[in-house]
Design a protein around this nucleic acid. Structure first.
Lengths: 226, 226
DNA sequence: AAGGGCTACTTTGTTGACAATACATGCGCT
DNA sequence: AGCGCATGTATTGTCAACAAAGTAGCCCTT
């Protein structure tokens, strides 16, 4: 039961974090109907802050609420997951373009170092899909931040990634092609280092397009049942 | 003082709507620090539901909250407004593409009818920027919905448009080029009617790009001071 | 026996009071 | 006289009790 690690903020923030990670990690299954009192006892808080957190989570689309009828975790269908990747394609394409224009040299160096560490992780723990997924998240996270586009980063990091990660945890997918993904990441960083925004956008779009096709294929093969 | 017109939902929803429209209409100025009790008396509700609504609004980026220090309406700088349009470019481009692939014939007919009505409005109330802005919103709203991409529509209608409209109300800008915008709208609908998703995406991106350039120019001219 | 309506219960929505924290004002010190 | 500290106030965060709405189970009716 994930307790709040950092209680620096307010009680409602704590609740928000707890429930969000619980949803992402799959501890709260999609479609599961959850009662407020149950959540309260589970995360050691009262209904006031909880309800505030539920409001935030609802507006982020992680759970749906029917008045007087309770709240249940959102269940994303396979087609909706693919739609999510369509959105990522265009938004992260833009992020890559703007990152190429605006990242500092230090940030780019850090980004390259990140990739090196990912490469080591892949070689060491070969097949360990989990770490690859985490590394992938780190990569995209840095580019979103590097775009210096506040709202864009907010939408990517605050909305989309949580929904995508929700499925990563549950299916531990998106791996399977670690080396290929790493190569694509390297080329994107190269384009960013050369300040070629147009190329960075193109490569990022193609990268996510490939990831989407990969998921599409797995769904057709019946590996992913959602 | 905008009272809740439809009280079918819950009290917190009511609060959410009230405050959101108040922000969008400029009744609550950006950067303005607002106390919870003041809001309560203003909208006739208690602090419980209010705080829930504030949480939702914060997570949507319409206001910022510092623990124990109160909440203030978000103030978007000129550069951030332009960044918003960059995001719209790619997201609405995608929406147009998917709308071309998925809208029903009826929806397309309605869309065309909408444009006809806009044309009449422009001719009648020439220079009345307000109606043009509303018509523009209607057009983009229909395409976002027509994309059949739930999350995309949610992000456009629930996040971006409110922030953009916030400035439309305050500056009554985005007009100035009503006929040109209408022509661009017509071409986009044509592409959609022909089920040419690629063209629809291209035209939509160019349309919003032009709108952004228009705002950029006005800012340089000093017409828009933000 | 099956369907509809009613009643009781559970769960959510709301309220008002209580506790904790930040901001401001005024005092003392340098 | 200016700066820093301490206290007081106002505002936010939290809590527990109350009211309303939905759900489920039971009985009655057809």
């Amino acid at each position: 039961m994930a307790e709040a690690t950092l209680q620096s903020q307010t009680r409602a923030d704590e609740a928000f974090d707890c429930i969000q990670t619980a949803i992402v990690k799959g501890e709260l299954a999609p479609g599961e109907k959850i009662g407020e009192v149950e959540l309260c006892s589970r995360f050691n808080l009262t209904r006031g802050p909880l309800r505030e957190a539920l409001g935030r989570l609802e507006s982020r689309g992680l759970l749906v609420r029917r008045p007087h009828a309770g709240v249940k975790v959102v269940s994303v269908s396979a087609s909706e997951l693919l739609e999510l990747y369509r959105i990522r394609e265009v938004m992260e394409g833009l992020a890559a373009r703007q990152a190429a224009e605006r990242m500092t040299d230090e940030e780019i160096a850090e980004l390259q170092a990140t990739l090196d560490s990912h490469e080591r992780m892949i070689e060491e723990a070969q097949g360990q899909a989990y770490y690859q997924a985490e590394g992938d998240y780190d990569f995209h996270h840095r580019i979103a931040t590097g775009s210096r586009n506040t709202k864009l980063a907010q939408m990517l990091l605050g909305d989309l990634y949580y929904m995508v990660r929700m499925y990563r945890y549950r299916l531990s997918t998106s791996a399977g092609r670690p080396h290929m993904a790493l190569g694509e990441h390297r080329r994107i960083v190269e384009a960013i280092a050369q300040r070629d925004g147009e190329l960075a956008e193109f490569l990022m779009k193609r990268h996510i397009h490939a990831a989407r096709k990969n998921i599409e294929k797995k769904i057709e093969e019946g590996v992913l049942t959602i």
